[in-house]
Design a protein around this nucleic acid. Structure first.
Length: 483
RNA sequence: GGCGACGUACCCAAGUGGUAAGGGAGAGGUCUGCAAAACCUUUAUGCGCCGGUUCGAAUCCGGCCGUCGCCUCCA
């Protein structure tokens, strides 16, 4: 089977085929940095991280660009529209660039914690004003845009396909318009490419139309085409950005170049709370920094990947707790496997069909990145692995290593899980706390040899209260930190 | 009003024509001094409701009910 992806442009799953050879050029709409990232951001960027990881696993040469929007994201398109970063920076009494810097760093911190690989390029919108102006000039030259009072608007009536991504027509847009019509616009559906800066507006750049700042949509066109070329393979982003953002990107880019902009459009669905979208408007969002207080970042990642990227994911503490237990089961399996391998010799082969599991996993991922299905394969593999480990048979170090490699490849390389227990790593023991626990366990082993169970349980309960979980095995006692 | 999704067990969640994955929780059991971990058994004659097509439908078609998203900013 080959990789198929759901393309929003055709509203169907299509066979994935890069425009040129083996290279995949991929652009994903990054965050507007005026606040800490929340679970919704995590779903989007974990999803596309897995897309990039899986493409690389499938031997494509991926160039992944994800922008940082640090200017120009208007609260609306009317003249009252305000730059969200400017607005927040005024509230916080800091320079807009200071605010953008703070939340850019916060964003990377959170994404690193989630084990998302860094994009190959993370361009900033403010660093690409020249490129944005160039596109706007080209659009004016082609009569697809017009200047009014120092602002420039895209004329949607001149671009016949406007709305093709979201399946809208200009007529429908006008009929349902909820925004007061800006008198500068020729058509109510026209959108801003460049806005005149009012006196006192800090974020401003010189342009052929006077001092101003870029509109929201143009930065993605500028940065994607600069680094990926006029036509590239994948454009990703959140579902809610289909319109107007992505339709406008298509109009600007294809209007300027006359070429296909992006071949495949991938959109991830929303995180909901009690069935309602988690977002800034409703104020019902959970920041990642808060979530990480309660759950390990890897658990959040696991929770996200247990649903499909195109499905909504309903957040509740109970649901994440459930995911945490499932995640722990996989962690325990890896631990069981590695513990056994340390003492294994030239035993027998357990007869687990590694190739079959690998193929099932790939089938799932090939089907539009079906990570819930892929994780189900991992659970099946985990059950069979534990069965063999419990069977009492003497398993060979070779076969155990092969299983470990399989887990590391599928769960680790592709899905981005380390699946390491948070605690005892006998090979690399350098933390004093660990040595103290080991010391206590040595004492407890003596106590247990004398069958002084009350004393033994006292140590176990006491360590339990301090956050250490003990497991008495035939080979000795094992411990880990509570997750 | 327009456009688009979704509704699967107590919870989360796959499954787009062939007789309901996986995880959590619950119940019972094996192992254990007891736990923990792991394993085994078990938990939806049914996939919002009503019709239709078909040998066969959670999956296709029609209607209805409900929830949500987009049409202003949001991943």
């Amino acid at each position: 089977m080959a990789l198929t992806v759901y393309n929003t442009l055709s509203r169907a799953k299509e066979l994935f085929q890069p425009i040129e050879g083996n290279g995949v050029r991929m652009y994903v709409c990054g965050p507007t940095v005026y606040g800490h990232s929340h679970l919704g951001h995590a779903k989007s960027y974990v999803s596309f991280d897995v897309v990039a990881r899986y493409l690389r696993f499938s031997r494509y040469a991926v160039l992944y660009v994800q922008n940082i929007t640090d200017v120009g994201h208007l609260t609306d398109d009317a003249d009252e529209g305000e730059d969200k970063i400017v607005k927040q920076s005024r509230a916080d009494r800091v320079h807009p660039m200071q605010l953008a810097e703070l939340y850019t760093q916060s964003y990377f911190e959170d994404m690193d914690a989630l084990n998302n690989l860094r994009p190959d390029i993370s361009p900033r919108a403010t660093g690409h004003i020249t490129e944005q102006i160039a596109i706007i000039e080209e659009l004016i030259r082609k009569d697809l845009a017009y200047e009014v009072n120092g602002s420039v608007y895209f004329d949607v009536t001149k671009f016949p396909g406007y709305g093709k991504l979201s399946g809208r027509t200009v007529d429908e847009l006008v009929a349902g318009a909820r925004v007061e019509v800006n008198p500068d616009k020729r058509d109510p559906a026209d959108f801003a490419l460049w806005k005149r800066a009012e006196p006192g507006h800090i974020m401003r750049w010189p342009s052929p139309w006077g001092n101003g700042f870029p509109g929201w949509h143009i930065e993605c066109s500028a940065m994607s085409m600069k680094y990926l070329g006029e036509s590239f393979d994948i454009h990703g982003g959140g579902l809610e950005n289909q319109f107007p953002h992505h339709d406008s990107e298509i109009a600007q880019s294809e209007g300027a170049t006359g070429k296909l902009f992006a071949k495949y459009w991938l959109h991830n669905n929303m995180v909901t709370v009690d069935g309602r979208k988690m977002g800034k408007s409703l104020g019902n969002f959970v920041t990642l920094k808060d979530a990480f207080q309660r759950w390990r970042p890897e658990v959040i990642r696991f929770f996200i990947l247990q649903s499909h990227y195109r499905s909504t994911l309903d957040f509740s503490a109970a649901a994440v707790d459930g995911a945490a237990r499932g995640h722990e089961k996989l962690v325990n399996t890896i631990r069981n496997l590695r513990d056994r391998r340390r003492t294994a010799g030239a035993g027998e082969d357990p007869g687990i069909e590694i190739a079959r599991y690998r193929a099932s996993f790939i089938d799932a991922m090939d089907d539009d990145f079906n990570t819930p299905q892929a994780i189900a394969v991992l659970f099946d593999l985990a059950r069979e692995t534990n069965q063999r480990l419990d069977s009492g048979r003497d398993l060979s170090v070779t076969s155990l290593t092969a299983l470990d490699t399989l887990f590391t490849e599928l769960a680790g390389t592709v899905l981005g899980f380390t699946l390491e227990a948070d605690g005892h790593h006998p090979e690399a023991e350098s933390d004093p706390e660990g040595h103290l626990v080991d010391l206590l366990l040595g004492v407890r082993a003596e106590v247990r040899a004398q069958k002084l169970w009350a004393l033994s349980d006292m140590i176990r309960d006491g360590l339990g209260r301090l956050g250490f979980v003990l497991e008495d095995k035939k080979e000795g006692t094992r411990w880990k930190r509570k997750s």
